[in-house]
């Protein structure tokens, strides 16, 4: 990939453009229950949710499920293939891959959660400001254009070169790299709603901007944000894994999935399970988020 990040970037842009909810006023609770109903009937979304549920349970309960401690070296069992003793085999230090995957999932899921939360918080704020206050728009969008002028992965690598490798720094880099996509989408949604008559009417009544934003604009742009966050959740995990794979993110012995693939690469000829299984785990989780995102999109924006 030109960096999974940039694939990601393109990924969301190519989905049919998300429209802000068409309802002219703040969506009512019944709107959301409609959405929920549609979502639960959506097989794609449910398949995604199921995958994510299984992974989440596995990772949360890792201390109970994991058959071995993750950092216990056992040189006698080096690079044992998948089998009864070690479900998914062992690595070059004789550590159990299955156990490491469970614990590593905690890191990957948490990485996704943190980056998505931070990036969306910053991105939505900036996007709303850019969309609502035209004065600031040009500055914000200019900065976003500059960030977008570099392929996201290259930008992330450059940021890590400054900050130094490591999981936290990788997360910071990812956040910076994905913020522009939030800003763009949120700004576009805000713009479309801003021009609506009822907003003008509300403004004419002299209601404060803060109130208009909180009560009328934010609820209406929620749908595209939710979908974007879902897809970006998987995307951030993918990006963090790619950085770890390049040796810039989580460092061994941390069982982060991308880092495990990185380590396993050197042993591909002798112990394929060291890299193939962690990669499979990344793929499944990202798939889960993509399926859920697809389903959400349909549920939020029925045609």
């Amino acid at each position: 990939m030109s960096g999974n990040l940039s694939q990601l970037e393109v990924g969301h842009e190519t989905h049919p453009p998300l429209r802000a909810a068409e309802s002219p006023v703040t969506p009512s609770p019944s709107y959301w229950s409609q959405v929920a109903k549609r979502l639960f009937r959506n097989k794609t979304a449910m398949a995604g949710a199921l995958i994510l549920l299984i992974f989440t349970i596995g990772c949360v309960c890792a201390p109970i499920i994991a058959p071995y401690p993750i950092d216990q070296m056992n040189f006698k069992d080096r690079m044992m293939g998948p089998g009864a003793k070690h479900l998914l085999g062992t690595d070059d230090f004789g550590r159990d891959i299955f156990s490491r995957l469970l614990y590593g999932g905690r890191i990957s899921l948490l990485t996704g959660l943190i980056t998505v939360t931070v990036a969306s918080a910053i991105g939505v704020t900036l996007g709303v400001i850019a969309g609502y206050y035209r004065r600031l728009e040009i500055y914000i969008m200019q900065v976003m254009d500059i960030l977008l002028a570099l392929p996201a992965l290259l930008l992330a690598i450059a940021i890590i070169a400054v900050l130094g490798p490591g999981l936290t720094n990788a997360m910071i880099a990812i956040v910076i790299a994905v913020i522009p996509s939030y800003v763009r989408i949120v700004r576009a949604s805000v713009l479309s709603i801003r021009e609506k008559e009822y907003i003008e009417a509300v403004r004419a009544l002299g209601i404060k901007d803060r109130v208009i934003l909180a009560k009328h604009i934010l609820p209406n742009i929620l749908s595209p944000i939710i979908v974007l966050m879902t897809v970006q959740f998987g995307g951030s995990i993918l990006a963090a894994a790619a950085l770890s794979f390049l040796g810039l993110g989580a460092q061994p012995p941390i069982p982060e999935w991308g880092a495990m693939v990185y380590v396993g690469k050197a042993f591909l000829g002798q112990a394929w399970w060291m890299s193939i299984f962690p990669g499979l785990a990344i793929m499944l989780v990202v798939l889960g988020f993509n399926l859920l995102g697809d389903g959400l999109r349909d549920a939020l924006d029925p045609k």
Binding site: D71, Q72, M73, D92, F93, G247, P252, P253, V263, A266
Partner: peptide, 15 residues
């Protein structure tokens, strides 16, 4: 430094 062999050594030293 970034070196696969030293990274392996480091993990053993760590444990």
């Amino acid at each position: 430094p970034e070196d696969p062999a030293l990274q392996r050594v480091a993990q053993i030293v760590q444990s």
